[in-house]
Design a protein around this nucleic acid. Structure first.
Lengths: 234, 234, 234, 234
DNA sequence: TATGAATGAGCCTTCATTCAT
DNA sequence: TATGAATGAAGGCTCATTCAT
C-alpha cells in the first residue's frame, strides 16, 4: 500500500513548505534577522513541528543551503553535457550562476551562511552539511572540467592552472553577484545606481573581461553568447 | 589654553582604544558574535563610557568601518600620485586592496557590515555613515581615474566603460579576498586548501587575468609588478 | 480459548520491554534526564503505544518502581523463611538490600522518585502507587518481624522499639547505598575514592557497627556472615 | 571613600536576597521545580539581573549549596574546639548535622544537587564548586579528627578505620535526615507517620545505636547528651 | 564624565501529551 | 491497537541599551 509512501511525500511537502517560508523571510529581512518563531508562524506550523522537521536553526538554514547548492550544481552539471566548446561552457556556467543568484537571492544568502559557521557550531548534527559540501564540490569540479575541455579544444589559454582558474572565476563571480544583488536592499553605497550601471551590462562586461583574460583568439566571446543573460522569469 | 584641546585628544585616544578592542574581537570571534559587554571589558572601559563614545552598536561598527575605509582610501589615493602608467596604477590599487585586507581582515569584515544594514536601522544616527560612504566613493573614484589615465596613455583597452570597469574590478576583488581570508576560519568548503592553491599565487593570477582582459599589449603585467604582493609585515 | 490470554501475555511482554528500556536510560542518563521520546525509541515502540501502556511519565516511573520494590520485597520475604536467628535475618536483609541496589542502581533511582512527587502530581492516576506502597510496607514489615524474632530469640537487644529500629536500619542503609553507588558517576566529592575505601569493606563495617549496636553478645557478627556480600553476578 | 565598599556590600546583599528567594522556592516546590523566572520574580529582580549575579541555574544552586556547606562546616568545626571527649564530639557533630537539616531542609536539598551533576554540566564555570567541595571536605575531616581524638582518649573503639567510620556516619546520617525531612512533603510511604515515630526520638535512637557500635564502655551515651537535639528555633 | 547594575524583550530549544489516521 | 506528526507551554539564557549615583 502506498500509505507510508504518501506519508513520506506529505512529510517532504511540509519540509519544503517550511523551507520556503524561511526563504521568504531571509529575502525580506536578511539571514541575520531570521528567527524560528516567525518561520513557524509563516509556515503555519507550530514551533514544535518546526523542530520536528529541523533539529535546530542551523539545520534549517543548511536545509535551504542544501536546496540551493543542489539546484545550482544540477543546472551547472547540465552545461557540460551540451555541445559547446570549453570556453563556451565557462561562459555558460558563469551565466548560470549569475542568473541563479538573480532569481534566488535568498539562496545565495544561505550559501554565504557557511562564512559564519565556526567549528564550535552544532554543525555535525546536520545531515545537510556534507550534502552542501558535496554539491559545491560538484559545481566546482564541473567548472574545472569545462576549463580542461577548453584547454584541450584550444578555446582556453593553457597558461593557467585549471583549478586555480576555477577558483578565480568562482570567487570573482561571487563578488560580482554580491555587489549586484545584496547591496540593492541597502541605501548606502549603491555603486551601481549612482553610476547608472545595469546589472546585465555589467555581467556581459565581466564575461568579456574574463574572456579576454583566458580565451585564445578563437574563444573570444561572441554577440550570440550575450543572450545567456536571459531576463528574469516572472 | 590647551585644556579643551587635551581633553579632545584624550577623547580621541579613548575612542581609538575602544575601536581597537572591537577590531580584535571581530578578528577573534567574527562580526556576528561581537557584543558590547566584551568590547567594554576588552577596552577596560565601563559600558556607560562605551555608550558615551559610540551611541549604539551600529555606530561602533561604523566607526571601525570608517577607520578602515579611511585608511584604505588614503593608501589608494597615494597610488595615483605616483609616476605610473594607468594600467600599473590599476594593478597597484588592486594589490593595495588585497594587501590591506590580508593585513586587516577585521576591517574587511566591518566593511561587509553594510550588507546587513537596513533602512530601519538607526543608521542615520551615526555620524560615520556619510564618512564611510565618502571614503568608499573616494576609493572608487580613484580607481576610475586610474582607468581613465590608462585609457588615455594607451595602456588600457578603451573599449570598456571606465566606471563599469571600476565596479567590476572592485567587486571581483572583493570576492577574491572573501575567498582568500574569510573562509580560512571555517572548516567547510576550503577550496584553496583542498586544491593546494597559494593565496599569493592566486592574486598574481588574478592580476594576470585582469591584465589580459583590460590591458593593451603594452600594458600586460610584467614580472616586476608581481612584487606588489609584499609579504605580510610582522 | 487462549487468544485473549495470549494477547494479555503479549501486552505484559511489551510493557516489560518498555520498562526495561526506561531502566536502561535511567542507568545511562539519570532519572532527571529521562524523556519519553527516547524511551519509545529505545523500546522500538511508537509514542502512541507508549502512552497506551503507561498513561503518563509518572506512571511509567512508578511502573519501574513497582517492579523494583516487588523484586526487593520478594527477596527480603524469602529471608524470613530461612532457619536463621533474628540478628542473622537482619544482617541478611541488609545485605539483600545492599546487593540489590548494587546490581540494580537504576531501580534505586526510581525508588527515590517518591521524593519528588507532590500531591499536585497525577499520582492518583497510577495503579502502581498503591502497589509500590504495599511492596515497601511488606519489606518494612519483614524487617520489623526479623527484629522481633531476634528480640524473642535473644539475639537482638530488646531495648529498642522494633519499628523505630527498622526505620533506622532502613534509612541508614539507604544513605549508605546512596553514597556507594550514586556518587560514583559524579566527579565531585568522591569520599570513597579519595579515602580509598572499598564499598564491600564499608558494607561489612556497617554491619559490624549495627551489630554491635543492636546485637546481644550472642549475636555479634561472625566471619561466616561476611560472605553475604556476594560479588556481583556477571 | 567607602563608596566602592558600600557598593560591594550592596551587591553582596542582593546576591543574598536572590539566594534566599531561591531557597524559599526550593523549600516550597522542590529543587526539580525551581525555575529562574520565579526566582527573579520572588527576589523582585529582573531576569537580566539574576543572570548578572549568577551565571546560570547551576551556579545559583551551587551558590546555595556553598552557603549551606559553609554554614554547616563552620558549626561542625566549632565542636572540635570544645572541651569534650572524642565520642562526645562525634555525638555533637551528628546532632549538629541533624539539627541543621531540620532547620534548613532547603539547604539539604541543594547539597543533594551534587548527585545530579554530571561531568557534562557547566560545572567548571561556577566558582562555587571548589568552595563547596572544600567545605564538605572540611566537615568530613573534622569528623575524622573527632574520631581520632576519641580513639586516643579511649572513648571510641579503636577497631575501626577512622576514615571509613567517618564515611559510615556521614552517609547513614544523610539517609536518616532524608527519611526524616524529605519524605514529609510527600503523601506516600510515610514510614514515620504510619508507625508513629517521632523524629527526635529516632535521632536519639540513632545516636544510641551508633554509640553502642563504636563507643567503649566509658563512652556510652548518657542522658545528659540527649539534650543535644534542641527543639527547633522559631 | 564615569560607572556598572538593572532592564526586559527576544531568542532558541525541549518535551509531555494528544489525536487524526 | 498502532503510529508519529502536531502542539504549545515552559524554561534557560543573551544582550543592546538605559539610568541612578
Amino acid at each position: 500500500m502506498g500509505t507510508s509512501e504518501r506519508k513520506e511525500r506529505e512529510k517532504e511537502r511540509k519540509k519544503e513548505l517550511i523551507l520556503e517560508s524561511a526563504e521568504q523571510l531571509i529575502l525580506e529581512k536578511g539571514l541575520d534577522h531570521l528567527n524560528m518563531d516567525e518561520v513557524a508562524e509563516r509556515a503555519e506550523v507550530s514551533k514544535g513541528s518546526l523542530y520536528h522537521y529541523f533539529k535546530n536553526k542551523t539545520d534549517l538554514v543548511l536545509g535551504i543551503c542544501n536546496k540551493a547548492t543542489g539546484m545550482l550544481s544540477q543546472e551547472i552539471a547540465k552545461v557540460i553535457t551540451r555541445d559547446l566548446s570549453g570556453i563556451e561552457m565557462v561562459y555558460t556556467i558563469g551565466a548560470t550562476f549569475l542568473n541563479f543568484v538573480r532569481d534566488h537571492p535568498e539562496f545565495f544568502r544561505s550559501m554565504r551562511f557557511f562564512d559564519n559557521l565556526k567549528e564550535t557550531s552544532q554543525l555535525d548534527d546536520s545531515e545537510y552539511i556534507s550534502s552542501c559540501q558535496s554539491n559545491m564540490e560538484t559545481s566546482f569540479t564541473t567548472m574545472v572540467r569545462a576549463i580542461q575541455i577548453g584547454m584541450q579544444d584550444g578555446s582556453i589559454n593553457s597558461s593557467y592552472d585549471p583549478k586555480e582558474l576555477a577558483v578565480l572565476l568562482w570567487s570573482t563571480s561571487q563578488g560580482l553577484v554580491n555587489m549586484a544583488y545584496l547591496h540593492q536592499n541597502t541605501p548606502h553605497f549603491q555603486l551601481l545606481e549612482k553610476n547608472q550601471i545595469e546589472v546585465t551590462g555589467m555581467f556581459e562586461s565581466y564575461m568579456k573581461l574574463i574572456g579576454q583574460g583566458i580565451a585564445t583568439e578563437d574563444g573570444e566571446i561572441t554577440d550570440d553568447l550575450k543572450s545567456i543573460f536571459e531576463t528574469e522569469k516572472d
